[in-house]
């Protein structure tokens, strides 16, 4: 936690809605009283399925002055277990990083640092059960953020509801909140 700034990285595949997640997380935290927040998507030649990165930095007291990528994440949200097979994603998990992984089965942590905490949520199933889908697949960002709110306490479902209403409108609110709550209630430590 450099200078009291909490750094979060998102590892996902193109189409898994992680860039929007990084932006929403900044909004949730700021709305919950954090002093500053920045969402940093890493933009390149995106294609569906290709690994992508996004980062969010949030700070309770200090202004955030950096635009650089997160290299020592306090938290990491992994949208797809297959990403753990990619060396540079696996290597970006540092001692002390807290992981939130979208998975329906336990994680093989043999190649991961020892001093890490892993939380699991089956965000894919929650999306499928609630038909919370795009043509590219499940809209994972909302359940992932619901689970993240639960494990960190950085924001609550009420904040999510306010921001989601502002961003996506009243019509989409109930379905968004349903998947957020399902994840909030089902995330568990491995």
């Amino acid at each position: 936690m450099a200078n009291g700034i909490i750094e979060i990285s998102f590892a996902a595949r193109g189409g898994q809605t992680a860039v929007t997640a990084s932006q929403l997380l900044a909004q949730f935290a700021y709305d919950k009283g954090f002093k500053d927040a920045i969402a940093i998507p890493i933009i390149g030649a995106e294609r569906r399925g290709a690994p992508i990165w996004a980062f969010t930095k949030i700070s309770k007291n200090k202004m955030i002055k950096t635009y650089d990528s997160v290299v020592n994440p306090n938290y990491m949200l992994i949208f797809d277990t297959s990403l753990l097979e990619i060396p540079n994603i696996r290597n970006s998990i540092k001692e002390g990083t807290i992981l939130l992984i979208n998975s329906n089965k336990p994680i093989d942590n043999t190649n991961l640092p020892k001093n890490i905490k892993i939380y699991l949520v089956d965000a894919t199933k929650i999306c499928i059960d609630n038909s919370f889908m795009l043509s590219s697949g499940p809209i994972l960002n909302i359940p992932m953020l619901g689970a993240f709110g639960k494990i960190t306490g950085f924001y609550d479902l009420e904040v999510m509801e306010n921001i989601i209403r502002d961003e996506f409108g009243e019509k989409r609110l109930s379905k968004n909140m349903k998947v957020a709550k399902d994840a909030f209630n089902s995330v568990k430590e491995e």
């Binding site: 909004q27 700021y30 500053d36 920045i38 933009i43």
Partner: peptide, 10 residues
């Protein structure tokens, strides 16, 4: 470009 154009801040 991107560093300011596509990152989000208050």
């Amino acid at each position: 470009g991107f560093i300011l154009s596509h990152t989000s801040k208050p």
